[in-house]
Design a protein around this nucleic acid. Structure first.
Lengths: 149, 149
DNA sequence: AATAGATAGTTTCATTTGCAACTATATGGA
DNA sequence: TCCATATAGTTGCAAATGAAACTATCTATT
């Protein structure tokens, strides 16, 4: 009879999932309530705001969202006039997505709120702890072999 | 014109979600493929294996699963003969769930696999790093005010 | 230049999830 | 005791998600 000692409470995948869900629940509720955005929509906006126009594929890679969700999120954002698509000059199958002024303006409202929520979550963290957490999470991600489509 | 500097890549909720999804994807695929269990089902088994019989409510609290998912997971496990329910002696609305010998046996198979996967994920971590990660995740969870139903 | 196979993105369909309503029992006060 | 309200758990229905099929275009090979 083998002595098994797996405590769910101390099991990393569980801890990670619980922490992530707690954070997600709180933050996504806020995006949703205040700006009517779902998480993938918010991510697309954030990525587009960082740089210039991109293909759906590039967006998906940058935001870690599968192409189906990118497609749906982009459709919703286009519908609301927050992004626009233009034909891809070099590839007729694709297109380039960019924020509209309205999209940029919305971003201007959300970003500070997002940063404030992050600050609140990390309120008790020192800069070093924050950096460490970031590093540890990236290492786990790599170890999990985040084989993204 | 305000200078906004939110890089999604460095945004904690995003990092946490990406890491958690990468881990979940890998591990839950394994539960599913090798044992036919979904995550909530695995969690219920893990909690029941740690202690004795419990009500669905207590189980949900311990595993951080809402009552609907507990109900469904318990139904599936009962169906497969991995757990059994008996009437709650003090409350006719509730019942007590416990692992069957089959359930305990299945747990005996899964737990080592789960621990091995965890070990693989944390392969490059020192004991101190591991403990630190655990602590940081718990602090974030608390800060997020994991107001569980 | 024609065709076969690959790729970008969308859509359809099945599954999963979550909310709200429901049943049954319990509790506390008139 | 009887009623009103609260709680445990389940179920039905609608929204969200994911896999596979589909359309259009591109690329490589002949």
């Amino acid at each position: 009879m083998s002595m098994m000692t797996l405590r769910l409470d101390a099991f990393l995948p569980y801890r990670l999932s619980v922490a992530s869900n707690a954070v997600s629940a709180r933050i996504s509720a806020s995006y949703r309530k205040r700006f009517g955005l779902k998480v993938p929509e918010w991510r697309l906006i954030a990525i587009l705001a960082e740089g210039s126009e991109m293909t759906p594929q590039a967006l998906g890679n940058a935001a870690r969202i599968d192409k189906i969700s990118v497609s749906r999120a982009a459709a919703a954002l286009t519908q609301r006039g927050l992004i626009v698509a233009r034909d891809h000059p070099g590839d007729g199958r694709s297109h380039l997505l960019a924020l509209t002024p309205e999209g940029r303006s919305l971003y201007g409202e959300i970003a500070p709120v997002a940063l404030a929520m992050e600050a609140e979550l990390l309120g008790s963290f020192s800069g070093a702890e924050r950096a460490l957490l970031d590093t540890l999470l990236r290492r786990i991600e790599t170890a999990a072999g985040a084989d993204f489509p």
